[in-house]
């Protein structure tokens, strides 16, 4: 599983940070930054949930 985030789309709602704090953070502008682009299997659920919760659909989960 690989994660990319588009901080042009990001609206800084912070849902990803609340849902998967080991994977996502907000930079000084409050926009998404990916801490763990290839998170371990234990985080799969949280990452999918973060992707679904993102109101700007700025998170993409690649299953490769």
């Amino acid at each position: 599983m690989r994660i990319t985030a588009d901080n042009e789309r990001c609206i800084g709602a912070g849902q990803c940070v609340l849902t998967a704090p080991d994977v996502f953070d907000q930079d000084d502008d409050g926009l998404v930054t990916v801490l763990a682009p290839e998170p371990g299997a234990g985080l799969t659920d949280a990452v999918w949930r973060a992707g679904d919760l993102c109101p700007a659909r700025a998170i993409t989960v690649h299953e490769d």
Binding site: I11, G12, G14, V17, L18, Q26, D28, D29, G30, L31
Partner: peptide, 13 residues
């Protein structure tokens, strides 16, 4: 407007 305000409401802030 949104971009200017986002840093004020981050989870950390």
């Amino acid at each position: 407007f949104r971009k200017a305000l986002i840093p004020e409401f981050t989870v950390r802030r």
